[in-house]
Design a protein around this nucleic acid. Structure first.
Length: 477
RNA sequence: UGCCUCAUCGUGUAACGGUAGCACAACUGACUCUGAAUCAGUUUGUCUAGGUUCAAAUCCUAGUGAGGCAACCA
């Protein structure tokens, strides 16, 4: 959802200026053309503990370099034969100061500039120039560029000498580079190099696979842009290499979705529940609010009949003390519908529950009884006769067993969770069919889902799980 | 090996040299037609050792631990 307005820039639009600056550097003795091969240069550059050697062309007249530079630009040389170096300090302990390359020959097409150029500026040269020309005051980047900062400042100094710094309200804008730590998430592979590997090896559907921590992946997973922004704002930016727990991100997503997502009832692991005192042919509908946090979203009607599906986990034969849901002899609320008392349960030969029986309080339609008695448990349900089956995908995050930052020597793909997708079918109330694509919905007590029709052959929406609901019952267990 | 960074509750972050605070998590309670949400409360921290100072999370020195750089990559 980000909008950079008029400040959308392409580096390629500044190639002409960059080349002019390079020429000026040569003229002022700050740069020279070097014909050393990469292997030769490695020897000349030396090691940090002792000074390097000067390139044979380092002290040639500027006219020579100027001429060579124009020939480089004209395409007279093959890749790698010559390059343009900044003349700085061959004895610096910072290797980036030992006459770094600022232009190299590359006979390749540029995706913006086409075939206009066969020499291209290096990042360390282009970056400060772009910032200066665009009036950037603070150029934020990640920690690995810390040692590049002196070179960044060097280029800015040269631009200042050339009078190329931008004025803003009468003040000269001198860009400054500042570094901060990249965002790390626990259990999550964030390295673009590694994500690329997953995409290329087709271990995921693409860059927008909902399991990937990419923005387009998060979008398909249903993470709202505002939630991601809030998450980042809560984290802050420092130079400390931190690892944020994945649950913080999920919490930010839940917080946003709680106030925006439509509520629907759906049963994921169904067991049949029969209301013995409800007529077999009868049916009725109950009114249910779409979002209790947002009354203006209105309500919808949920059909109800004698036979329902309820969540298997909502029944326990031998319930522990704090279990508030179904058990023989217990009364619970069927959400929006009525109070229901379980009287009996039918099991198969293995002791697995196949049917729950009970009676409803006929005076409790809508969910409250006239005598005002309270029930601790409220469970979700769906009428079997009216239920629609919807495909759901329960995505897990991609994670490695060990610290994703550690152990770069081993192939991280061996740590990937093999069960990172679960495909299933849920039984939902009919109103899910009317949902628009790309809508967030909360299946009550089951989590947040995001409708994704792009991906299904039939065009029917697939419900991708965005996040689970917080579940304090699992902590009690 | 040289050089450059970083270290504050469980996690992530604040604090001109002057009361160590906030958020999330955890825990307790209230409320509730989602064991959700909401509300109230509680617990927990300055890497180590010296030094400077009336006073150090903050400045200095050393150590420990972690990360980065030594591509004609970004």
């Amino acid at each position: 959802g980000f909008d950079w307005g008029e400040h959308f820039y392409n580096a390629a639009d500044r190639f002409d200026t960059m080349y002019e600056i390079a020429e000026n550097l040569v003229k002022s003795g700050h740069a020279y053309v070097c014909g050393l091969s990469q292997e030769e240069w490695r020897k000349y550059r030396g090691v940090p503990t002792e000074p390097g050697l000067e390139s044979p062309t380092r002290n040639k007249a500027p006219e020579w370099s100027l001429d060579m530079l124009s020939k480089m630009k004209a395409g007279e040389f093959a890749d790698g034969t010559y390059c343009l170096r900044a003349k700085i300090d061959m004895a610096s302990p910072n290797i980036h100061f030992r006459d770094p390359v600022i232009y190299r020959i590359m006979h390749v097409e540029h995706y913006h500039a086409g075939n206009q150029w066969c020499i291209y500026p290096m990042y360390d040269f282009a970056h400060p120039i772009e910032d200066a020309l665009e009036g950037v005051t603070h150029s934020m980047c990640t920690l690995e560029f810390e040692v590049h900062r002196p070179l960044y400042d060097w280029v800015i100094d040269r631009m200042q000498e050339m009078g190329m710094l931008v004025q803003n309200n009468g003040i000269t804008v001198r860009p400054q580079q500042r570094e901060f730590s990249r965002l790390n998430l626990s259990y999550t592979v964030m390295s673009k190099r590694k994500l690329l590997q997953l995409v290329e090896e087709k271990r995921v559907a693409g860059w927008d696979d909902p399991r990937l921590p990419t923005l387009c992946g998060m979008r398909r997973r249903g993470y709202p842009a505002a939630a991601i922004r809030n998450f980042c704002e809560a984290l802050g930016a420092t130079k400390f290499i931190s690892t944020t727990d994945f649950s913080i991100l999920e919490q930010a997503v839940r917080e946003n979705l709680n106030s925006t997502a439509m509520r629907r009832l759906a049963v994921f692991d169904p067991v049949k529940l029969v209301i013995d005192n409800y007529p077999e042919d009868a049916e009725e509908t109950f009114d249910a609010v779409n979002n209790p946090e947002k009354p203006e979203d209105g309500s919808r009607q949920i059909p109800f009949s004698r036979e329902l599906y309820v969540e298997r986990a909502d029944f326990m034969k031998d319930p522990p003390k704090k279990f508030f849901r179904l058990s023989v002899g217990r009364e619970v609320r069927l959400r929006y519908a009525c109070l229901f008392t379980c009287t009996d349960v039918i099991e198969d030969a293995n002791g697995k529950v196949v049917e729950i029986h009970g009676v409803m309080d006929m005076d409790s339609r809508g969910g409250t009884s006239p005598d005002g008695r309270v029930v601790k448990g409220t469970i979700h349900w769906v009428s079997i006769r009216h239920a629609v089956e919807v495909p759901v995908r329960l995505y897990d995050r991609l994670f490695s067993v060990e610290d994703p930052l550690a152990d770069d020597s081993r192939d991280f793909t061996e740590f990937l969770n093999p069960d990172s997708i679960t495909r299933a079918t849920a039984f939902a109330e009919p109103a899910v069919q009317a949902l628009d694509p790309s809508t967030s919905v909360q299946f009550e007590r089951m989590g947040y889902f995001f409708t994704d029709s792009e991906d299904s052959k039939s065009g029917a929406p697939v419900f991708n799980r965005t996040a689970t609901l917080r579940d304090s019952w699992s902590k009690i267990k």
